[in-house]
Design a protein around this nucleic acid. Sequence first.
RNA 1: GGCCUCGUAGCUCAGUGGAUAGAGCAGCAGCCUUCUAAGCUGCGGGUCAAAGGUUCGAAUCCUUUCGGGGUCACCA
Length: 595
Amino acid sequence: MIEQILTDKVTEAVKTLYQLEATPSQIQLQNTRKEFEGDITLVVFPFTKVSRKSPEATAAEVGEFLLAQMREVESFNVIKGFLNLSIKKGYWLSFLSENYKGEKFGFTDADGSQPVVVEYSSPNTNKPLHLGHIRNNLLGFSLSRILQSAGKNVVKVNLVNDRGIHICKSMLAWERWGNGETPESIGLKGDHLVGKYYVVFDKHFKEEISILVAEGMNPEEASKKAPLIIEAQQILQKWEAGDDEVINLWKMMNGWVYDGFAKTYQTLGIEFDKTYYESQTYLLGKKLVEEGVQKGVYTRRADGSVWIDLTADGMDEKLLLRSDGTSVYMTQDLGTAMQRYEEYKPEQLIYVVGNEQEYHFNVLKVVLKHLGCAWSNSIYHLSYGMVELPEGKMKSREGTVVDADDLMQEMFDTSEAMARELGKIEAFDNEEAKNLYRTIGLGALKYFILKVDPKKNMLFNPADSVDFNGNTGPFIQYTYARIKSVLRKAAEAGYGVSFSETDSVELLSQEKELLRKIHDFPGIVSQAAELHSPAVIANYAFDLASEYNRFYHELTILKEENMASRTLRLSLSQFTAKVIANALWLLGIEVPERM
RNA sequence: GGCCUCGUAGCUCAGUGGAUAGAGCAGCAGCCUUCUAAGCUGCGGGUCAAAGGUUCGAAUCCUUUCGGGGUCACCA
């Protein structure tokens, strides 16, 4: 790419002219703003100290050097400290003719280094997935594809939290009030069925508490003494002891949940390379804690609990093992982190987890470091903000959660209604139409969520999310479909798409704008990978689609009579379609051939 | 209260050291005898929360203040 060559030449220029060994951060290249002439701009302010000349004079000197030394540079102009370079038409045309098929344009093959492990989703098995999980899943899946496309070897893992008091609550409620209901018998998705009994438990539990409080007990004590919670705890103890009856019930109900999750993941288009279950890993951390005690980095108190003192690291004292010897959240994460390190020796260990757990991951890193694990630095917490609704935070207890399955269905229904309204359905048979509604509905949902910077809290306004106009997924999908339509018609007319740089042709400003935007894509992918941010890709995809729409409306393609120009525009169109498809693929968004 | 984080147009968001801060939505006015109108064009809309500092240059970095959110469990 031209940026790399320019960087090298600018380095050479300032060395020759001013005896300066420039660092990469001093060489600031950017696309020239539309209102100025040129393609690429060098900011020369950083060199004025060593040049001892005005910004204008410095820019002119560097410009002369580049013009003399680089065959790609056509001309330059200087405005204040900005050196605007015009790149020769030949560079753009050969870039187009070499890449317009674009199959893997912007994507880098795996470099053979150690893998990057990305953990995401990590659901509890007591309730169905909701909007918060959707953000998690979309971020994790998209990030995995972005890293993979930037040349990393990626392993996508899921850690299912399948044990603990929460699932025991659902089990108890189902046993007592379930009447033997199964997903088949009442036609309810398994995860929803189990979630239903979690709510049933909570209802009866609250009743018991209010009775106890009415009898004079204080609320906090009541929530610990209510018969239901005590019973649930007994079930948990039986589970840990391996009681057959409890284990069988647990297996059956978790099985229902897994079936339900599998369906949701499939509809959402999310997958994993490997799924871990906490029931199989929750004991791993204890051994590590014992090791720490023996090394003297953790301390065991008189009551038997184990602690680490992190006040020297600016944090608190942290519990690592309960006085009864059972493990806490941190113990488990220590264990699974170590397991994953030993299994993959990853270059980076990424956790896609909400920002309310930032402190937890800071502690995790430090605790591992104290154990002598230098690799704890390779842990990266992709900490995303929460999804808020117009009426405020989602609260499962108040029933304000947005269910993942319901939401997706609503998106499908809306896209169908929209298509009907626009009179689009005549062109499709039933099967095709149904797939299209899904593609577009999901495209809208995914784009809506992924376009926002992961680390920021975001507002999910249902009315906005089903909007298919403007800065939305369907807008980008539509641009793609329209290009495909043009290409189909071109093929019918027997027009060639394959552009050769030797063709004598003008390069109009609209054509060059589009080409420059496409040219940026590989840089955008590596930037997204560095920042761990699908939003970078999403915003780029919208920019590119907008640029194409402008191009499309300002220039004719099929009606263009100059064959070379027509071919140029067709190959540009094909290139754009491919880059849009590649960008949307990184977001996990499918692209329709027609819509 | 300590620590973390966010504050950009009426709303949702880009921009994170460079040129006159950008989009979409909403509002208004145009463009379908069509290479797909889920589109395009135009108009209006800003004390980048406030103040100070660093810099040739600050929405972006630093300090303070104000406001929102998170977190500081023998929960996960």
